[in-house]
Write a protein that binds this DNA or RNA. Structure first.
Lengths: 163, 163
DNA sequence: AGGCTGACTATACTTTTGTATAGTCAGGAA
DNA sequence: TTCCTGACTATACAAAAGTATAGTCAGCCT
């Protein structure tokens, strides 16, 4: 069982997944530390040393990834200052970073199910109602979609990039 | 802006994300090649050489990751035989592998938006209707949930593992 | 002026992930 | 019995991601 490969995509031998968005995404967030930094940003962590301490990574890696994610646009630096201290920079999540939440939470929920016996340490809920939150595939009209119902087709509007 | 950290979780300085499901998930699928193999499995690729060729990775890496993902339970080997050939093994996706689809498609859609100018080479639709499919956070009653509405709380049923 | 604090950088090393190229191996077909 | 094919393995190496430890540096407070 797999997705429904439509039209010429059905013959897997006849094409190769070039210009794949997954590949491009992984170039930015394809490492452990990048995704853990995002998790922390979702939790509300903003400061350099908190990132390093909470994800358990050396300051070198934290600095590297924070720079990398900031340059890529997932995080944004902004000045802060707490009383009796100098002005410094902290890191806040941007819309681009926020848009990765489904992917990150999808990984978490998968881990919850298969490595925590469905009893993970943390629960993700709708804050207002307390209802459990899940990451799902939905069609535009709101219908849930399973792998076997998912169609993959060529985008007629796609044009090869000039680079 | 971030998720709503409930109760004692609000003070990020007072706890560390131990036993995190994301960390456990990344131990299995935290590499480029693992996620690309999953993509291919969703597309319907089943054979060793097709995996290697289509994701553009050496046979060594393909063999390594196929073994790894099979041992972890995301893929399952099964015999096949096409006419005039001997019996060999191919790899099919399991329920465990299928359950990662939201995470993988979430990464793809993020790539579509930010690196393809919203005009990616492939479209993901509900096959029956042709409607676009998106990966979303939903509460049990079907309400869409944004980052700011997401509550994170301690699971009262959680017990530390004995290992 | 000197110390403190948080955000980094420098140097050196290890591990993991990946490439490149060649070879093995099972077993049905000719 | 020898060939062919698809699924691997062997060896050697390169590059990326991460560890460990120590040091720098800006600027506010005393």
């Amino acid at each position: 069982m797999s997705a429904v490969m439509e039209g010429p995509l059905a013959d897997l031998g006849s094409w190769k997944p070039d210009h794949c968005s997954l590949v491009k995404a992984l170039e930015i967030v394809g490492t452990r530390s990048a995704l853990l930094i995002l998790r922390e940003a979702y939790y509300g962590t903003t400061r350099f040393s908190a990132f390093a301490r909470r994800i358990g990574v050396t300051e070198r890696i934290a600095a590297q990834q924070l720079r990398h994610l900031t340059e890529a646009g997932l995080l944004a630096k902004r000045p802060y200052r707490d009383e009796g201290g100098r002005t410094r920079d902290e890191y806040g999540i941007t819309e681009m970073g926020r848009d990765l939440l489904p992917a990150v939470l999808g990984l978490m929920q998968w881990g919850d199910k298969y490595f925590q016996d469905d009893t993970p340490p943390l629960l993700y809920v709708e804050h207002e109602t307390g209802e459990a939150v899940t990451v799902e595939l939905r069609s535009d009209s709101g219908h849930r979609v399973e792998l076997e119902e998912l169609g993959v087709r060529l985008n007629p509007d796609w044009r090869p990039p000039r680079d």
